[in-house]
Nucleic acid binder design. Structure first.
Lengths: 161, 161
DNA sequence: TAAAAATACTCCATAGGTATTTTAT
DNA sequence: ATAAAATACCTATGGAGTATTTTTA
């Protein structure tokens, strides 16, 4: 089984067209034809009925389609997770914290994180809450930790709009 | 993501050895090294710690291993199912039936099956129950349908031993 | 005749193998 | 000294593209 072919098959089945799948995948139409042909040979069965200039999934094709959906989704998830792991090995993160929290609570947390993910450069910015909020507005922080104060809520709502 | 690489990775992780994985997969050891290297480059992260002449999964490697397990299992299942579909497209089947059942019940069933799976050659053998049983013993039938008669049970038990 | 798939052909990238070197036990 | 992984080098298979032909609506 070849993921690349499976992906092509999936698009062809969805589009009900070799040509449209080719466009969607940014490859040539003959490339798609050959990939499907190759799959049909490997499996030893027909995946699409070529009826006139339409194509239609065979029974086998339909079964494969349903299983392909699951496989491709799982593969996609795996790739996302690996992408996330990469950031934990070589990423960088800027943490903002208000004065009190930053000085009294964050230090051990940051140290612990640095031990666990030595490849990640972490920067802790300790500033008054309102300054932190401005940086959050301007997307200068990856994460910010501030005390829970009623007035904050309105600012956050403004940011999230 | 490449399926063959994932499979190789899985075997290496299981065997904790490039060389043993290579043997298991019937490819050369350098081929395994390159596949792992290629994966590490694509993901942008290290999958194995090369500690001395031992190898050990990294954190990322462990995550990948767990997801690979699921993917490979699903792919295996898919391939089995496709193998089964192939038999429904081009297989052959020999059905044995006792005289009464064969003459009165099987005909419409067989006709229906032939319509649904025109690629499968089906042969219906109608014979007295005891003859059918002998053929079952000798593995000459893919399936046999006979009346439920007490004495049969002992014969079937004998066959299944 | 127009649109879609199949075929023909050429080319290149990738994957594999063998041989060898490096590294650590 | 040995066993395992990495590196170097070569080869070949397969997969891609462009151009063209076939088929049918």
């Amino acid at each position: 089984m070849d993921f690349y072919q499976l992906k092509t098959f999936y698009h062809v089945a969805k589009q009900k067209s070799f040509t449209r799948a080719a466009n969607e995948l940014s490859i040539s139409q003959p490339a798609v034809s050959r990939q499907i042909e190759s799959m049909e040979q490997k499996f030893g069965l027909t995946l699409f009925h070529r009826v006139g200039r339409e194509i239609k999934l065979t029974d086998s094709g339909l079964v494969l389609f349903e299983m392909a959906e699951k496989i491709l989704s799982l593969v996609g998830k795996t790739e996302s997770v690996m992408e996330g792991m990469k950031n934990l090995e070589s990423g960088s993160i800027v943490v903002g914290a208000s004065t009190t929290i930053g000085n009294y609570l964050m230090a051990p947390i940051v140290i612990n994180f640095m031990k666990k993910y030595p490849g990640v450069s972490i920067k802790l910015e300790i500033q008054p809450t309102d300054e932190i909020l401005i940086k959050v507005k301007n997307n200068l922080l990856d994460i910010a930790i501030i005390p829970e104060v009623p007035v904050i809520t309105s600012v956050i709502n403004e940011i999230l709009l």
